[in-house]
Design a protein around this nucleic acid. Sequence first.
DNA 1: ACTATATTTCTAGAATTATCGAAATGGAAT
DNA 2: ATTCCATTTCGATAATTCTAGAAATATAGT
Lengths: 105, 105
Amino acid sequence: MDIDHAAKCLSELGNPTRLAIFRLLVRAGATGLTVGGIQKRLNVPASTLSHHISHLVWAGLIVQERDGRTLHCHTQPGVMDDLVGFLMDECCKGFDADSDASRAG
Amino acid sequence: MDIDHAAKCLSELGNPTRLAIFRLLVRAGATGLTVGGIQKRLNVPASTLSHHISHLVWAGLIVQERDGRTLHCHTQPGVMDDLVGFLMDECCKGFDADSDASRAG
DNA sequence: ACTATATTTCTAGAATTATCGAAATGGAAT
DNA sequence: ATTCCATTTCGATAATTCTAGAAATATAGT
């Protein structure tokens, strides 16, 4: 997880609809939800939903798997940990240390 | 930290320039950096930089404090922990549990 | 082939966001 | 008051993103 991938993930999760989708999927566990299942819960038009889902797939945050006519969506395990790891490790380490401006860079 | 504030923070951090600013500031520790110091490091025009900084301030991710003519910027302690906490707690708990679609909601 | 269901792609307009120069503001020094 | 420095606000333009209806695609059943 480098800064560009982190920015990509953060940006995608920054959209309220997409964050709601993502949260729904994480809570749905490994089985995930179908696109239609998400649509029923969030009540957004299919095309809009598909657009947002494709964003999340593109960012590597979720995965789709076809099962007959339905597409199951579930989170990509590990990506969230990687993102949080980036935020904590790459960004937030040593916040309490007596660092000064000359340390940055 | 509710889902709306989380989305706000994620959205602001999702911009590469803003994420770079934020990372710079976290690494600069409690002292932070001046706006000019950030500008020298990131080499973006002052007006553009100011625009992005005001976004980060608006989202509550960073704080500005005036010291004479210069404005020191530093991260808002705790917000990052809150955000990570939201992501892990609100989103990611029980990922390994044998939940199914009927569990969500 | 036809029908139905699930989902995506196409398309276009609306809304938002990014960029940056010019001008303005806030504060310190003479 | 004037000048200088640091930063913001203004304003205009370019680029991106959001939204959603219509059409298309994929799969399954008859």
